[in-house]
Write a protein that binds this DNA or RNA. Structure first.
Lengths: 137, 137
DNA sequence: TTGCGTGCAAAGGTTTTGCATGGCA
DNA sequence: TGCCATGCAAAACCTTTGCACGCAA
């Protein structure tokens, strides 16, 4: 755990443990707050945000921007598993979030860097569009 | 102008005219409000949001989600120019927005549809990462 | 005249911040 | 003991909504 400087606290450990226990799952701050309330071990809103920000800084979790007006999502991404290099597609109609594992996109990552000098953080990027069902329906 | 049903008003015309006069430029609602205040022809916040929403519905402009907490951006996209099919990269460090015209990405669009059934709305998608300068600096 | 568009103000939701308290080392 | 983390409440933002008034047709 590189860069960890401060103290270790209950809120901190339980938050990170929960995120790690649900790899690839997107949680909003509100959902996390509710989860720990249900567990009988509530964590204050401010603390949740502060810890999430720290985790992001330390690289433990990813923060996702799904849309303006919608709240931010946070998720632990297993560095060893395939999901570390997968992509997210969000259907603008039904709102579903699709996880995609795709080599072609990985190629694009290379292309963006080599031809445009842009180091793409694919974990953070969300592709907007229409999913298969909504497109046909 | 398909689908236009209501009245034509000053606010409506000036807003759309301004957006069309700055194709490809991203404006936030606050920036637009300030612009018209500076012009001496202020438009109420609610009206700005309502008109922008209408323009998006009618397909005149695009709405961009840059990040949660940041405000939404709106821009007129010239349907005839190349910028109708260009892509956006946002540097997470310096915050700059890069407009990219790239055939490889257009290929990806095809790939996503054919292999994953996902109809990607590239105009709305923002690639997060590090720009050339920030990557080297 | 009819009814849509406007503007103000208030509400709604998410995220941040100030400050005193509590807990880790 | 010293300092960081917590939690509450308040603030800060962006955006939406209610409502009365004004303007387009």
């Amino acid at each position: 755990m590189a860069g960890k400087t401060g103290y270790r606290t209950r809120a901190q450990e339980e938050l990170l443990a929960y995120l790690k226990a649900t790899p690839g799952v997107h949680h909003t701050a509100a959902e996390l707050k509710e989860h720990f309330e249900d567990e009988g071990a509530p964590i204050g809103t401010a603390t949740i945000y502060r810890q999430l920000e720290r985790f992001v800084d330390e690289g433990h979790i990813q923060k996702y921007f799904i849309g303006t007006g919608e709240s931010a999502c946070y998720a632990f991404v297993d560095p060893s598993a395939a999901c570390s290099s997968h992509f997210h597609c969000k259907c603008e109609q039904c709102g579903s979030l699709i996880h995609l594992d795709c080599d072609e996109l990985r190629e694009i990552q290379k292309h963006l860097l080599e031809h445009h000098g842009f180091l793409w953080n694919s974990g953070k990027t969300v592709f907007y569009g229409l999913c298969d069902q909504c497109r046909k329906g």
